[in-house]
Design a binder for these strands. Structure first.
Lengths: 212, 212
DNA sequence: TATGAAATACGTGTTAACACGTAATTTTGT
DNA sequence: ACAAAATTACGTGTTAACACGTATTTCATA
């Protein structure tokens, strides 16, 4: 029986979540090699125990799930990473392909769906629920629109999202405030933002998570 | 043994959390009368089973933990409500005193702290961790500043937080846009907002959760 | 080297958001 | 009934954010 079940480590800084997941996996007979409560501990478990699958919370002290995935890729570790996320954190999905992240578990998943995920990942296929695929589609459309901006435009958009005025941005970048205005105008046109008072500030704040 | 342990119902729309909490309580020998995955189910459990304590997630489909607390108060139900929250949702703490909410469990709590909470609540005392007390203090300072605003000023501040321009607000409220400007000026003065471009819009968006 | 894109900066004009103020009317509380 | 607060609305002025445009320089690429 244990031969057909993947070995797994898990990590989450929320004790109730960790307990829920841990109990679930044990009850289902998975080979749970260990559990951690922060990113460093999780990474150590992965390197020491070399599990088939690591189920990690994205947001943890010391190292995020993403950072762990990055480190595992860099170290050629074959463990398949599955990330747990409460919210659909937009910027995080963009990294999926780059980092060999095999799947995402939304915290609202029914327990059976979590088992599906594990089985799919064990077979070597990535697991993305329809909801996540759809969401990635939306994010990619928004990101590709952002890709039409020049480097300077992106930089200025970021500063706008940080509540900087044109004068402040100009001063920070050692350019004329008239240049900042020009860039703003170009951004509004490229992103097809409705021409309305404060519309660029509002847009920038609503999309600040994509302006990394 | 069961005589000294309170009867409890729990509800959370996140299966892993619910499982974690449920398993924990059962392991500790609490008298778990039932568990629900949405607000309606939770409320039904409370009215049918009349537990000593109800541990409820704040955000659930159909009824929030807060709404359940409101209904219980209205119906003179003596069950003590404990709310589970992932984030420190500011507006929700304001209602604690009004609604006989006996405590908050942050999702990052260690399991022992959850048990402390339950014991304290069973003895009839409210349970607020130091972290939450401190946070409530900050929120109250901000809220009392908001209390210096007149009803009209508050209404306009809300609309500002909803991205409305002065013209739009004036049109919606059937007043002159010059009146809106005057109100804005008064708000900025009362809330001691730094006089800087877009500062009121920025402030309103950052504090929108308190503008209910 | 030539070309196109990006970056820079200005001209000119309009409007919305702000400041500081006055004042009348209405509402509220005692 | 009276006073204070709230609401309403205007006068006047400044400035920042926007629009639409021109133009030069720099950079990247073929």
């Amino acid at each position: 029986m244990n031969n057909s079940k993947p070995s797994i480590i898990i990590a989450d800084d929320h004790p109730l979540l960790l307990k829920g997941l841990s109990d679930f996996l044990l009850e289902k007979g998975y080979n749970l090699l260990g559990s951690g409560t922060d990113g460093r501990e999780a990474y150590n478990l992965i390197t020491q125990k070399k599990p088939d699958i690591a189920i990690l919370d994205i947001q943890m002290p010391y190292m995020s799930g993403i950072e762990i995935a990055q480190q595992c890729k860099g170290a050629n570790i074959s463990t398949k990473i599955v990330l747990i996320t409460l919210h659909k954190e937009k910027e995080l999905y963009q990294k999926a392909k780059e980092l060999n992240i095999f799947g995402y578990i939304l915290k609202e998943f029914a327990l059976e769906e979590i088992e599906n995920c594990i089985k799919t990942v064990k077979e070597g296929s990535p697991f993305f629920s329809e909801k996540i695929k759809e969401f990635i589609g939306v994010v990619q459309a928004e990101v590709s629109e952002l890709d039409t901006l020049t480097p300077s435009e992106k930089k200025i958009l970021k500063l706008i999202a940080q509540d900087k005025t044109n004068k402040e941005i100009a001063s920070q970048l050692f350019i004329s405030y008239r240049t900042v205005e020009k860039h703003r105008s170009n951004i509004i046109t490229k992103l097809k933002i409705e021409p309305k008072t404060n519309s660029l500030l509002i847009w920038a704040k609503e999309h600040h998570d994509k302006l990394l």
